[in-house]
């Protein structure tokens, strides 16, 4: 069980699959789980899928990244109802997730990671 994990949420399953591949290459030891698309595999976001991705993540405290608006609303709801601490970042999706994951792999302290994510905010 690690302290921190990364959670990815997108409207499309292939977007988070692809992004996970990118992140695992640079951070093989970081817990990364993802929720993409609706329950039936369509375009959209699913509360249930996000909840499952949170439970499956080995991290106790999660850094969450998302693509568009409804991903965030569903994330917010999951965060409110979850026992884990989930911090949602309004950064550019790929750049934010990549930065956080690479820094977690390098064991950079959390407050330092927050500082580096700050200029990546776009939403």
């Amino acid at each position: 069980m690690s302290d921190y994990g990364v959670l990815l949420v997108s409207h499309v399953p292939q977007i988070v699959e692809g992004l996970s591949i990118l992140l695992r290459e640079v951070a093989p030891d970081v817990a990364i789980t993802a929720a993409g698309g609706t329950d039936d595999g369509g375009v959209g976001t699913s509360f249930d899928k996000i909840q499952t991705a949170v439970l499956k993540n080995a991290g106790e405290s999660l850094l969450a990244f998302y693509d568009l608006g409804s991903s965030k609303m569903n994330l917010d709801m999951v965060a409110e109802l979850s026992d884990k601490k989930i911090e949602i970042f309004d950064t550019a999706f790929i750049e934010g997730a990549y930065t956080a994951t690479a820094l977690l792999q390098a064991k950079v302290p959390y407050h330092e990671i927050l500082k580096q994510l700050e200029p990546l905010k776009v939403k």
Partner: peptide
Amino acid sequence: LLSKIGGASGPLYGS
């Protein structure tokens, strides 16, 4: 509603 509507309306009606 939250878990089955999906999209933005799911969390909005759910809330």
